Amino acid sequence: MGTLSLSDFQDVKIPAPWGHISGRWYGNRRERPILAIHGWLDNLGTFDRLIPLLPDYIGVLCIDLPGHGRSSHIQPGMFYSVLDYVYIIPLIMKEYGWRKVSLLGHSLGGVLSFMYTSLAPHTVDMVISLDKLLPLSIPKESEHMAQKMEKHLVEENRQVGGHLHEPPSYSYTQLCKLLAKGSSGSVTPELAKHLLHRQVTKSQLYPDRFFFSRDGRIKFYNITPLSIGLGEEMARRIQRKPYLIIKGSKSIHLPLDLCKGTMSILGQNNPHYEFYELEGTHHIHLHAAEECARYIVPFIRHHRPPVLTSWSLAGKEAELSLTEKPKEQEKYLAMIRNNPSKL
């Protein structure tokens, strides 16, 4: 077996009441893929370095959340919320007719994965969460929310008159530095290209300059913080679900002292729970993709192994059809069923 190719994808547009959700479906498109959800202010390009390390027998559908990347912005007068983002998961499941979903989420994507799994655990077969688990309350939460509400209204007023002029534009080098600064150094200027290619538009006024095309209102979205007690109660609903969590050692986004109760419940009597802390920052999957893949790939192989009807086995089945030895066919098929890892 090989790994996925970053060039083997199909661009998709998933219809939504406010427009569409953009995505890229990598690899196998005949079977239900893993649904990959990026973090706040990012887009599906965040998985660019991880995708080529994943096994090629399974597909991965990476999406841009509303207001991010190339997905539609919500209507004027509305605001972005974590709770609303959770409903993106069943919307996509309904579009493709999935009864189950496998989730891979970074940061905000990890939060959405946790919240959806706790609400509908019977529809989730595995979760991979990268450097985030749940949104926790912070000191002076009400004051923080009030400030975001005011800034949201300012941004919306700016957008109303936005058709009269372009947003501030920058050179590509400046954009890389701005993105790195905005991520507090978690994304280096060298890695910024993976995120910029889906969230900037070329200026019509200034040659060789670009501006951010994502919805400015997402900077002030409602994070809907959870109390520690509520987070733990939600974790109890997940029960013995295959759950892999990877934390960046230099990141503040998965505070172990505050999340230890929730994580303990996830792992209680659960042989399918795994936690690893790797050297790195919040975007651990982007700057340390190989290290993350060391744990993600075996987890996927164990909980979403290749099946006999998979496209990755088509060549093997064709070879069997050429032989005239039925007993050898039966023996070979049994070996595939019992030891898929040997393929």
Rank of each mutant, 00 (worst) to 15 (best):
E141S: 12
G216Q: 09
K13A: 13
H194Q: 04
Y332M: 05
M145T: 12
E291T: 08
L50F: 04
P76V: 07
D131N: 03
A120T: 04
N222D: 15
P168V: 10
L133G: 11
G23H: 10
G231K: 06
R337P: 00
G110W: 06
S71Y: 01
R158T: 08
N338E: 15
L266V: 04
L195Q: 07
M145W: 10
S213I: 09
S186H: 01
L286G: 01
I300T: 00
V307Q: 15
H68S: 06
G248C: 10
E277N: 01
A235D: 06
L343I: 15
Y85L: 14
A120V: 06
V111G: 00
S22D: 08
G280W: 05
N270P: 04
G77S: 10
L130A: 09
D131H: 08
D8T: 06
C259A: 12
D84R: 13
G23Q: 08
K316G: 01
Y57R: 07
T46V: 13
G182E: 05
F9V: 02
V154E: 14
L133F: 10
G267N: 00
Y87L: 11
F47R: 02
I51M: 02
D64M: 11
P167M: 00
S102D: 06
Q268W: 11
Q10N: 11
V160C: 04
L179D: 00
K250E: 14
L61H: 01
I63P: 02
L195G: 08
H68L: 01
D8N: 15
E232D: 06
E95S: 07
K250D: 12
S169Y: 02
Y206T: 15
S264F: 03
Q239C: 12
G77W: 05
H287S: 15
K331A: 15
M93L: 08
S22R: 09
G39N: 04
A293E: 08
D215T: 09
